[in-house]
Amino acid sequence: MTKLSVNINKIATLRNSRGGNNPDLVRVALDAERFGAQGITVHPRPDERHIRRSDVFALRDTISTEFNIEGYPDERYMNIIAEIRPAQATLVPDPPEALTSNAGWDTYKEKDFLVEVIRELKSYGVRTSIFVDPDPMMAEGAAATGCDRIELYTEHYARHYHEDKEEAIAAYVATADKARSLGLEINAGHDLDLNNLKYLKERIPYLDEVSIGHALICDALYYGLENTIQMYLRQLL
């Protein structure tokens, strides 16, 4: 079964645009769980332009599904993980000023750094996932760091899906197969939506988890959050 983790960054962005607590981030997370989501994902950036540090602690104290915290593993992020002890820490290489995640790790160039980070995260009992581009060599490099999972950065797949979906998915299948052969589990995320998610699942049926935020929240404006989550879950059957 492939789990759906709902990224609620966009809910925090909307709340922060007007101040106050509307929409209520914790309530949305609890509703997402009640509507069928098997996880909640957040990315607390240093400038707190969406998720705030206080949000992470509030969510820890209330949600009951898997909590996935994304981020660049600087001292601030590592301290959050040490205190929260989420189910999963997903490491992304983007700098603090990046608008959104836009590339995977070079798992060879950054091996020593990642080995050290993952060793610390595992000492907290946290599952580790590394954001990677669709390249079997990057999966090999990830396996050498001692991580538990990779997360396939699916922006390229989503961008080219409507042009040639077989070509768009090929490198992802190869990377996932390599990772699996090395004992890694597979996550995926970035620009996945109701159009391209089902085919991704069909071609990589052993996906453990997808993390979806922007498209899901946009769809919820038209279909409602409960219906939208159910629609996404059906793509993963």
Rank of each mutant, 00 (worst) to 15 (best):
M231Y: 10
C147M: 12
D164F: 06
D112E: 13
V28L: 06
P93T: 06
H162L: 08
T100A: 15
S5G: 13
A170Y: 13
R27Q: 14
S129G: 06
K165I: 08
A176P: 07
V132M: 12
E151V: 02
D135W: 01
A215G: 00
V115T: 11
S5W: 07
K111N: 15
G224P: 07
F67P: 07
A144H: 12
R45L: 02
A29K: 03
G224M: 02
G125L: 14
G189Y: 00
E140C: 13
F35G: 00
A171K: 14
Y108S: 12
K111T: 07
Y108H: 14
D191N: 11
Q230N: 12
A87W: 08
A158G: 10
C147D: 05
H190P: 06
Q88R: 12
L30C: 13
M1K: 10
I118S: 05
T100E: 11
Y223E: 13
A29P: 01
L236T: 05
R60V: 09
G125M: 04
R85H: 14
L91H: 06
Y157S: 06
H160K: 10
D164E: 09
E226D: 14
D208T: 12
G104A: 00
A170P: 03
E226W: 08
K178A: 12
A143W: 07
I212F: 00
V42F: 01
N7I: 07
W105H: 06
D193N: 15
Y124H: 10
C147Q: 04
L59S: 06
L121Q: 02
T62C: 11
S54N: 14
Y124E: 01
D219E: 13
S181I: 00
T65V: 15
A98I: 03
D24V: 04
G71D: 03
A89V: 13
L236H: 04
A139P: 02
D208Y: 15
T228L: 01
R85P: 03
I212V: 04
G224E: 08
E33K: 05
I217E: 05
E97Y: 14
Y77R: 00
A179V: 06
N195K: 09
F35C: 03
A37R: 07
I40S: 05
E120M: 03
S17A: 15
P23G: 04
S64P: 05
E209W: 05
V115E: 06
P23S: 02
A215D: 08
K3I: 15
N187F: 15
A188G: 05
I63H: 00
E75D: 14
T2E: 04
E66D: 15
A174S: 13
L200R: 03
I229Q: 00
H162G: 00
A171I: 05
V26Q: 10
P86W: 00
L114K: 02
V6D: 01
E66Y: 14
I84M: 04
L194R: 01
M137Q: 12
A87I: 02
Y153M: 05
R203L: 08
R76I: 07
L197C: 07
D219L: 03
E48V: 09
